[in-house]
Nucleic acid binder design. Structure first.
Length: 304
DNA sequence: CTCGGCCTGCTC
DNA sequence: GAGCAGGCCGAG
């Protein structure tokens, strides 16, 4: 699902197409009463989302980690896309693109009509996404209280990363996915950053050498920035609001390439499970300092 | 921290 | 039918 680069790509498109426009009407299509975060406010109370949106003007579209914030002249709609969430902006009654269904379909949960015949759809097949209504900045801060630094901002320094890793026993990949150490990485970019840094995903976080931490910090920023330039990664169902696919999938070095030769050394890319997630890595280029150490030394001195 | 659960659709 | 999928949350 969408990770930081995809969400940032969506943000840019929405900002360009919808910022400054007023909402004429909104429709929540499948309000579910219990267990769903879809139409809940932060307090957990049911709210009339359509009523909150109607008549408001969209001032700007911001992003925090993988969250989108549609900031209105009164209140903010917080959107998280989960695994399969999509936002489409298209004129009413027009199909977003030929290989997508006519909207709204059975998976469309919210339809927002803007002035100028623009219509915004929130669609989410697996329903892991969420919509929340934030009344003010205080609620916004509360929503993000547990999130770590933005990886592309100055607040995310090599020192901050090092401090977050110090003493941790967990696999480095688990921490990268956690959103607390740094926010915005998901399974794809965690694997890609670790490959670029030459660190094994299962390496104990607290055991990384200072230079490995420095490389990881740089790799995280580079891979995210590059992925944004290519408008994100489309493995299967990611589209931006103009129905465009991402372009970064052609530049992935390990993710989704299990069994194929490593782009650096030619050895087959390994596909295993780390932190309960499918993980792609090169056991030669990412020797790290975990259990795989011996592999690197095969043929030379044996480890023990 | 790790695990299971949440959902639906797709591929074996 | 089983297993898998880009994320998160709550429980242990």
């Amino acid at each position: 699902m969408p990770e930081l680069p995809e969400v940032e790509t969506i943000r840019k498109v929405l900002e360009r197409k919808l910022a400054g426009r007023r909402i004429l009407r909104a429709e929540v299509r499948k309000p579910r009463t219990s267990g769903s975060r879809l139409t809940r406010g932060l307090s957990g109370l049911q709210i009339d989302l359509a009523g909150c949106l109607r008549g408001r003007k969209l001032k700007s579209v911001r992003r925090r980690a993988k969250y989108l914030l549609l900031e209105l002249d009164h209140g903010t709609l917080l959107v998280h896309l989960g695994m399969t969430g999509q936002l489409f902006a298209a004129p009413a009654g027009r199909r977003p693109c030929c290989d997508l269904p006519m909207l709204p379909d059975q998976h469309t949960h919210l339809v927002v009509d803007f002035e100028g015949r623009q219509r915004l759809y929130f669609r989410d097949i697996r329903k892991f996404g969420s919509l929340r209504w934030l009344r003010d900045r205080a609620e916004e801060q509360q929503a993000f209280a547990a999130l770590g630094p933005e990886p592309l901002e100055g607040e995310f320094t090599s020192r901050v990363l090092a401090a977050g890793l110090a003493g941790k026993q967990a696999a480095i990949k688990a921490l990268l996915l956690n959103q607390k150490l740094v926010a915005g990485l998901g399974n794809i970019y965690a694997d890609e950053a670790l490959f670029r840094a030459g660190i094994a995903p299962q390496a104990r976080a607290g055991r990384l050498r200072p230079r490995q931490v420095t490389r990881l910090h740089a790799a995280i920023r580079e891979v995210l920035a590059e992925a944004i330039r290519f408008r994100g990664t489309t493995m299967s169902d990611y589209f931006d609001p103009e129905s465009r696919r991402g372009g970064f999938q052609a530049r992935l070095r390990v993710y989704g390439r299990g069994g194929e030769p490593c782009v650096k050394c030619g050895q087959p890319v390994v596909r295993s499970v780390v932190a309960q997630r499918g993980t792609h890595w090169c056991s030669r280029c990412q020797a790290g300092d975990g259990q795989k150490q011996q592999k690197k030394r095969a043929g030379g001195f044996s480890g023990k």
